[in-house]
């Protein structure tokens, strides 16, 4: 049996409220909060990036897994905000964890789906018997252009998962991928901010891919929404996961434990993986969990996990995601946020 043997989450303490951003651009905060179900988002400090968050989330995952990090045979980071354009993030991660040198690593990018891609690959390598343990991380310090709708949601966070064949906390029952080519969101080389296709990112992009992936994996596994205790969909805003859940026949109670976006924002590659961590934090042995990511460009990865008895032994070994999200917060004003996110032009 292959599955998740340890998981960890990391979220920076800084937050900015929707009102604070709306105040600067003269937009209507109440309509954003109502329409997108967003209240605030996490903001990385200047000394936090995809690499640092990945290291901390992975250390927490190792604590829950209780393994020797030197036995991690592959470490992958999925992100659209790797600190270097050329030079791997994964090498820093593996080195900091003590997983080098007998370790395969790669940095992946697929908009908001890069995290689940890493999970997909690491899990598969373990299942194939190529490695003993595999690490998959989704992390981002995403940037929305000032004044763009994305600025209200683009957030920072990381989730890490270690896969193995023994001592699983959640066994992998099925995986499925659904992917087409679609220019709904992109960032060209050397561009600081991404661009997107506005409402085109909704119906033909997010909803089409997620529903197809969810239906595909349920068909493949012979399951239906009632077989799942919980479901996590990618969360670019608060509304979309509930809407796609409704289309597929899931109810609010199945979605809510992994629905973090109203207080967290969209952590891109970390988004649905962080939802899985908060769901594991409350899941009971025997629960079945469906995870469906979405990345613009476009595609969805889908996973079915079945929680084991070991969850009760490990969940308290590292901070729980809701606790990280709800405690020790610090609210920023827009000026400080703009400074932290390098949105202010300074003299060279």
């Amino acid at each position: 049996m292959v599955g998740i043997i340890g998981y960890g989450a990391y979220i920076p303490r800084n937050r900015i409220k929707v009102e604070e951003i709306a105040k600067v651009w003269g937009t209507d905060a109440p309509s954003y909060k109502r329409g997108l179900m967003l209240e605030e988002k996490s903001v990385p400090a200047p000394d936090q990036d995809t690499i640092t968050m990945s290291v901390e989330a992975s250390r927490r995952a190792i604590r829950r897994a209780g393994i020797n990090p030197a036995e991690i045979g592959a470490a992958y980071i999925g992100s659209e905000s790797h600190p270097y354009a050329v030079k791997p993030s994964g090498t820093v991660l593996a080195e900091a964890l003590g997983a080098t040198p007998e370790c395969h690593t790669a940095d992946l990018e697929f908009a908001c789906k890069a995290g689940t891609e890493c999970m997909f690959i690491a899990l598969s390598l373990v299942e194939a018997g190529r490695i003993k343990y595999g690490l998959g991380v989704g992390a981002d310090t995403s940037q929305g252009a000032p004044g763009d709708a994305l600025e209200y949601s683009a957030a920072a966070g990381a989730a890490a998962f270690i896969f193995g064949k023994e001592n699983c906390v959640a066994v992998s029952e099925e995986t499925y991928a659904y992917m087409t080519d679609m220019p709904d969101f992109w960032r060209r080389e050397y561009q600081y901010y991404p661009q997107h296709g506005g409402r085109f990112t909704g119906e033909p992009a997010y909803f089409t891919h997620i529903t197809a992936a969810a239906r595909g994996i349920m068909k493949k596994s012979g399951t239906s929404p009632k077989d799942f205790a919980y479901v996590i969909f990618h969360q670019p805003n608060g509304k979309f996961p509930f809407k796609v859940g409704q289309i597929l026949g899931f109810n609010k109670a199945q979605i809510e434990p992994g629905w973090l976006v109203n207080k967290l924002g969209n952590t891109y590659s970390g988004s649905s993986p962080l939802g899985l961590t908060s769901t594991l934090d409350i899941a009971k042995p025997g629960d079945r969990i469906l995870l469906v990511s979405y990345g613009s460009g476009a595609g969805s990865d889908a996973f079915i996990w079945k929680v084991t008895d070991r969850i009760d032994e490990v969940r308290d070994l590292a901070p729980k995601t809701r606790d990280i999200l709800d405690t020790n917060k610090k609210y920023l004003e827009y000026g400080e946020y703009a400074k932290f996110r390098h949105k202010i032009l300074k003299a060279e």
Binding site: D47, T52, E56, R59
Partner: peptide, 15 residues
Amino acid sequence: FRRISQDGKAGVIFY
């Protein structure tokens, strides 16, 4: 684990 400093905009990032 944090970023400590960096060698300008184009140089190495120090962790």
